[in-house]
C-alpha cells in the first residue's frame, strides 16, 4: 500500500514535469506529425520507381511501418530531463538517496510518468497516419491482441534500456557525448527510422543481437503479421530482454552504490 502510493506519486511527478514545458511538448508533437507525413511521402516516392514489393514488403506496409514506428518510438523511447544522469551531474542524487524509496523504483516510476505524459503523441502520430492514408487497421482482432501484448513488453524493454543508460552515468559522467551516441544507436537499431527488414543481413544480425529492436521493431512487425521467428519466439525474446536488462540494472546499481559519488559539497 505504502509502496503503491510512493510509486504513484513519482509517476505523477514524471507525468507533470514534461508538461511544465508545454511549448516544447507541443512542438515535439508537431515534429512527429511532420515526420510521419514526410516519411509517407518519401516511401511512396521510392516505391514509385519499383514495380511490386521490396524485400517482401509492399508500399502500404512500408508507409504503415513508418507511421507506427515513429509514433511508438516517440512515446516509449523518452529521455526524461531529470534522469539519473542529470541528477548525478548536479549532485542531486544525494537528495534522491535520502528518500524512503529505492532509486531504481523511483526512476522507473518517473520514467513511466513521462510515457504517460507523452501518450497524446500516439493520437497525433496515428491521426496524421490516417490523414495521409498511411495506416490500415490490423487484419483481425487476434492480431490486435498480439500487437497489444508485444507493445506492453516493448514498454518494459524501452524503460529498462533508458534506466540502464542513465545508470551508466555513475561512471561516464566525465565522458562527453555518450548520451548523444546512445540516442543515435538506439533510434537506428530500434528500427524507429528504417525497419530491420530493409537492412543488409550483417546489419540485421547486429540489430537482432541488441535489445533495441525489442522496444520498437518487434511490436510493429507483429502488427503487420510478420513477427521475426513467429509470434511466440518474438514475444519470448522481448520477455528475455526484460529479464536480462533487469538483471543488468540491478547489477549496475549494486556496483554504483559502492561508489556513489555525490558531486561537490
Amino acid at each position: 500500500m505504502t509502496l503503491v502510493r510512493q510509486v504513484l506519486s513519482q509517476v505523477r511527478i514524471g507525468c507533470l514535469t514534461p508538461w511544465a514545458y508545454r511549448a516544447s511538448m507541443l512542438l515535439s508533437f508537431l515534429v512527429l506529425a511532420l515526420q510521419v507525413a514526410l516519411f509517407s511521402v518519401v516511401w511512396r516516392a521510392i516505391y514509385a520507381g519499383h514495380s511490386g514489393p521490396v524485400a517482401g514488403v509492399d508500399v502500404d506496409t512500408a508507409v504503415g511501418y513508418a507511421v507506427l514506428s515513429l509514433t511508438v518510438a516517440t512515446v516509449l523511447n523518452t529521455s526524461p530531463y531529470s534522469s539519473i544522469e542529470s541528477r548525478v551531474r548536479d549532485g542531486l542524487i544525494g537528495v534522491d538517496l535520502t528518500r524512503p524509496i529505492g532509486l531504481l523504483t523511483q526512476s522507473l516510476a518517473v520514467q513511466a510518468g513521462y510515457v504517460v505524459a507523452t501518450l497524446p503523441a500516439a493520437a497525433v502520430g496515428l491521426g496524421t497516419g490516417l490523414a495521409v492514408r498511411g495506416l490500415a487497421p490490423p487484419p483481425d482482432v487476434s492480431d490486435t491482441v498480439r500487437f497489444a501484448v508485444s507493445l506492453l513488453l516493448a514498454f518494459g524493454v524501452s524503460q529498462l534500456i533508458t534506466l540502464l543508460m542513465s545508470l551508466t552515468s555513475f561512471w561516464t559522467l566525465e565522458v562527453g557525448g555518450v548520451g548523444m551516441a546512445f540516442f543515435v544507436v538506439r533510434t537506428f537499431m530500434s528500427g524507429a527510422v528504417v525497419p530491420l527488414w530493409f537492412m543488409p543481413d550483417w546489419l540485421q544480425a547486429i540489430a537482432v543481437a541488441l535489445p533495441f529492436q525489442a522496444s520498437t521493431y518487434t511490436p510493429i512487425a507483429v502488427y503487420f503479421g510478420r513477427p521475426p521467428g513467429g509470434f511466440v519466439s518474438a514475444v519470448g525474446l522481448q520477455a528475455l530482454w526484460i529479464v536480462i536488462l533487469t538483471g543488468l540494472c540491478l547489477w549496475l546499481w549494486s556496483r554504483a552504490k559502492h561508489r556513489v559519488v555525490v558531486q561537490g559539497g
Binding site: A20, L92, V95, G264, G265
Partner: peptide, 11 residues
C-alpha cells in the same frame, strides 16, 4: 541542503 533542493524544480 542549502545549496541543493529536494523540491521538484519544474513543478
Amino acid at each position: 541542503f542549502g545549496q541543493r533542493s529536494q523540491l521538484w524544480w519544474d513543478l
